[in-house]
Design a protein around this nucleic acid. Structure first.
Length: 375
RNA sequence: GCGGGAGUAGAUCAAUUGGUUAGAUCAACAGAUUGUGAUUCUGUGGGUUGCGGGUUCGAGUCCCGUCUCCUGCC
């Protein structure tokens, strides 16, 4: 895997880059679609192509539970299994055992947990996670890490980060697929010096890219930026940086300004299924009565399949009835919206006007995106 | 025409021999969602208990009248 920096912004920490993986080129900054179980929910691979999505995420945790490594292996890897020819990034399962598994026990070896599906017992450690990611055949594998909750006291954060670092060494040493890049993950909670230490130690181990983890776990927004600011300066310039779990537009713009290249998030697809459309000015709850007779598209001016062909009135009807097409159309719109957002961001970087673009976009957004109309 | 039954929130129904401010579920409406949760979570509004009178300290509940619907008989 190669990462090339095409341009560095003069007025911020932002970079315009290009990541070359075994399954294609990724223009950064990029938003990556979450496809936990080998599918971006409600979308087909051909939709993703049309929506200009660049990378799909797969989940080690979920795919380990179902369908299991044997099935993925028999298919010849996840690309062939799900018929997605583009790049795939896999999460290691570290976050999932933290957020999903009910019964879990961490040890130096890894984490013993019970499946959230049926209680069946599993074990995931650095070696197990890397082996599963090898079978999946993702283009980018993530190290198995421990995600700290918020809040978290300093003593625990120190101990956890030391373990995460030992696990990072083991993850790197474990066999992985020939074409597979491996990213380390910076942890450390809200403690700047621990973040720095973690970043520096990861760089010594040496990875193809670096993620900032443990954000968007319930902490106030400024801590999120603080975690980025405490990590980025200690990461190599020539490697991609990835903030895990972020997908809110203004948050991504702020992180790019601080030197981040990659993001992923469930938000666009999840809120679509719950009836919320993302627009450039904020969120729009399509279920609201005021849209019952509205003959305009979900987002006027949008060029996605949903907005080119259907009305708010119709989409509202579908969502109100729980129709599958409603979930699909809103998912199409939201994924397109975020991809467009990132494309505009890259264009602004190409044209040396990122800071101006960011200011203009942020000022046109509803404060906190809460509830107001956007028509 | 006669007998029996039923009328309670937008819908379907609760509410102890008469006893706190008439509840639930769906629907409606409003929020939430950050390394995935479609059919999820949280909250809000909504009632002259068909109508009118009476008994009672107190009536959705008992009595009288009346209206509407269901059902049976002639």
């Amino acid at each position: 895997m190669e990462f090339e920096i095409l341009k560095e912004d003069a007025k911020s920490g932002a970079r315009r880059g290009r990541l070359t993986t075994a399954h294609g080129v990724v223009e950064t900054p990029v938003f990556m679609d979450v496809g936990t179980l080998g599918t971006v929910k409600a979308l087909e691979p051909r939709d993703l192509k049309e929506l200009k999505s660049q990378v799909v995420l797969g989940n080690t945790y979920h795919l380990l539970l179902r369908p299991g490594p044997e099935v993925i292996s028999a298919a010849g890897g996840l690309h062939k299994f799900m018929r997605w020819e583009g790049p795939i990034l896999t999460d290691s399962g570290g976050f999932q055992v933290f957020s999903l598994a009910k019964m879990r026990k961490f040890s130096e070896e890894g984490c013993r947990f019970n499946s959230h599906l049926d209680g069946h017992e599993f074990f995931l450690g650095p070696e197990e996670s890397m082996e599963m990611q090898r079978v999946i055949g993702s283009d980018i594998a993530m190290v198995f890490d421990e995600c700290l909750p918020y809040p978290c006291d300093r003593e625990r954060a120190v101990a956890s980060v030391e373990r995460t670092l030992r696990w990072a060494v083991r993850s790197k040493a474990a066999p992985h697929a020939e074409h597979q890049a491996v990213f380390g993950i910076v942890q450390g909670g809200v403690y700047d010096d621990i973040r720095r230490h973690c970043a520096e130690e990861l760089v010594k181990i040496g990875f193809d890219g670096y993620a900032i983890g443990g954000v968007s776990v319930g902490e106030p927004e400024q801590f999120m930026y603080q975690a980025v600011e405490a990590s980025v300066p200690y990461l190599p310039k020539d490697k991609p940086r990835y903030v895990m779990g972020l997908g809110v537009m203004h948050q991504m713009a702020e992180c790019v300004a601080r030197g981040v290249d990659m993001f992923d998030c469930v938000i666009p697809t999840r809120i679509a299924r719950h009836g919320t459309a993302i627009t450039r000015t904020g969120n729009l709850a399509i279920k609201a009565a005021k849209y019952a007779f509205d003959q305009s598209p979900v987002e006027p001016g949008c060029e996605c399949y949903c907005c080119r062909n259907f009305t708010r009135s119709y989409v509202r009807h579908l969502i109100a009835c729980g129709e599958i097409l409603g979930l699909r159309l809103l998912t199409i719109h939201n994924v397109w919206r975020l991809n467009e957002f990132m494309r505009e961001m890259r264009e602004a970087l190409d044209n040396d006007c990122f800071v101006e673009w960011k200011a203009s976009v942020l000022s046109s957004m509803q404060p906190q995106n809460k509830g107001e109309t956007n028509d």
